[in-house]
Design a protein around this nucleic acid. Structure first.
Lengths: 335, 335
DNA sequence: ATCGTTATCGGGAACGTTACCAAAAAGGCA
DNA sequence: TGCCTTTTTGGTAACGTTCCCGATAACGAT
């Protein structure tokens, strides 16, 4: 069964396509009787305008694209839910892509999205993304862009992030106040923006309490499943830390598992706090202290910014970076 | 900066659009010199064919649509990864949508996908989906369809599921063999296909060991965050079970949390086993026994079936349902 | 009666691409 | 030389929709 088109309606009712088109969109210059005729027939035949034809003509699609490294990550899936909540309300569809931490995939996704004429793009950069030319490219093409969480200083656009500095500062401070001095920081590759902000927060807290910064306690960890385990084993062996502060969802889990696998008591031997949105933190053994990013709010805010620029097309409105506070949840793992 | 089109190339090189088009696709009937000329110019100008125009013309898009209830669910995000792995290899893009357990959203997503001329659809039904007319509709339109996990008997199509019966049977049997007799089964709304299969597995195991089935021990649980908690509290109070077997990712966590909140010892007072793909099961307190669905394999298999039917267009090939075995992971929670 | 308005509709082009049908030039063969 | 192939290219319609420009008729005003 083929979909019915405006032409079919025109033929059936002995009208021109222009008339049908105008009747369907309720134009004032169409006789009420004809209008009713057309609308009823369209309804009866279950007519739906062909969005592809629309996109070709209008160069837009009433859809926005989202690119995240991995949806199997609480932070990102919650952020997407925030995005969808806003987009749905405002009549936009959300097209979700994963970069799988690959720069090539990210490029390919971007290509696909602009090719499909999305009205705007929300992106959180992959762990391998070192250049932002592909983003500048779509900006040159006039596609509105908002970068969130994994941002970059090289791209000039609206951005939304959590207050990573503050979150890391509070996590570190808490560990210090509970008596720890050798606090290991397990974090993502150093080229991620969030990595540096969190590292700065960590350093600032150490400085505040006159604990010298020891770079041997900081470990950058790749995205392979076994990476965290090896890093943790190594840092435990060689540095004998009395606390661990991890910088991401993924690292929190993998590190936590590694520490336990090593038979080390949390928090007696090593206190543990994670920068993570894991919903199960309170059910772990021991319950895990966390710095939680407001993922839903970040997604919501980013989507709102994007849709505002799409709809207002205020091309030269000053770009801004919105920073949203994190939450601290202290549990047994860091007592 | 506007995207360059075939027309621009034609004008620049003083050729017709047909010639350019054929040169770009390497047609044999174009002079090699012209071909080279066109290809080089296209390369230089960074030409990319407009996929929207292509879709309008060809009625296809080299993209498949995926609809799942919720991506913030390990099972579904892993399944999506399986789907993407296959699709990417075979040159298809994957467009991900969430129904958020809403029938209306599911319909809307389907509409959008067929409107955008995806070449096929993979779907796992929402918790509110009681009719499958929207699926039959797209089948009438000739869009290939594969249903996975949350399937329905009302729709005739290729399907991929885990062996829910077997998984539930093994979970229940294990609880029985470890000495439990009053085994509560916390499950999803009864209209889900998986719910019934798992329930049957549960019943079969009881029957095998001559334990009478008591429907008071079976509880159907909605999708609201507080639902599981109340159900668990109630069943603990009134039925005094000595074991709990939960039927989904979400229920495992919520129920586990509720039991612990009630101060009940696992597994001493109540043994616990979940039908879940939680990656953190082994880190919980106590480590959680699970029946794991082969999510990645399910996604992979479903995508392969879909792409095969898309590409072969063997319209009247017999539909089949592929069933993939589950895995049992026994841990402390059910000892 | 003529003219300008208004209400209502149709025709065609355009968005970017491909496919079909020609057409022109060049070459081969009797 | 005349005709038939082959090679290479151009023109145009079509996909579904909207928009611009006209066209027609009715109607009141002059």
């Amino acid at each position: 069964m083929e979909a019915i088109t405006i032409k079919d309606i025109a033929k059936a009712l002995n009208l021109s396509t222009s008339t049908v088109s105008r009747a369907l969109r309720g134009s004032y210059e169409i006789n009420n009787e004809t209008k009713k005729l057309v609308l009823e027939y369209a309804e009866k035949m279950n007519y739906h305008p062909n969005p592809i034809a629309l996109s070709l003509k209008e160069n837009r699609s009433k859809a926005i694209g989202v690119i995240v490294p991995e949806i199997a990550n609480n932070f990102f899936s919650q952020a997407i839910n925030g995005i969808e909540a806003v987009a749905y309300d405002r009549g936009y569809h959300v097209v979700i892509f994963q970069s799988h931490e690959s720069y090539e995939r990210e490029r390919s996704n971007i290509q696909h999205l602009v090719g499909r004429k999305v009205d705007g793009v929300l992106i959180s950069l992959s762990g391998q993304t070192t250049t932002v030319e592909h983003l500048q490219e779509i900006q040159k093409r006039g596609v509105p862009l908002v970068v969130f969480d994994r941002i970059s200083n090289d791209i000039i656009s609206n951005k939304v992030i959590a207050d990573n500095f503050q979150g890391a500062y509070e996590a570190t401070e808490h560990l210090i106040l509970s008596g720890r001095k050798r606090i290991a920081h397990i974090t993502s590759p150093s080229l991620l923006y969030t990595t540096n902000e969190r590292l700065e927060g960590y350093k600032a807290a150490l400085a505040k309490y006159n604990i010298p910064f020891d770079e041997n306690l900081v470990r950058y960890c790749g995205f392979e499943p076994e990476d965290a385990k090896q890093v943790i084993f190594e840092v435990l062996e060689t540095q004998k830390p009395d606390a661990i502060f991890t910088a991401s969802d993924r690292l929190a889990l993998d590190s936590f598992a590694a520490v336990k696998a090593k038979g080390i008591q949390i928090p007696e031997q090593v206190a543990f706090i994670g920068f993570t949105n894991l919903g199960v933190a309170h059910l772990l053994d021991p319950p895990l202290s966390t710095i939680v990013q407001p993922a839903f709010a970040i997604g919501k805010t980013a989507a709102e910014m994007l849709l505002d620029t799409i709809e207002n097309k205020q091309s030269n409105a000053a770009v801004k970076t919105i920073k949203i506070p994190t939450e601290v949840n202290l549990r047994t793992s860091s007592e």
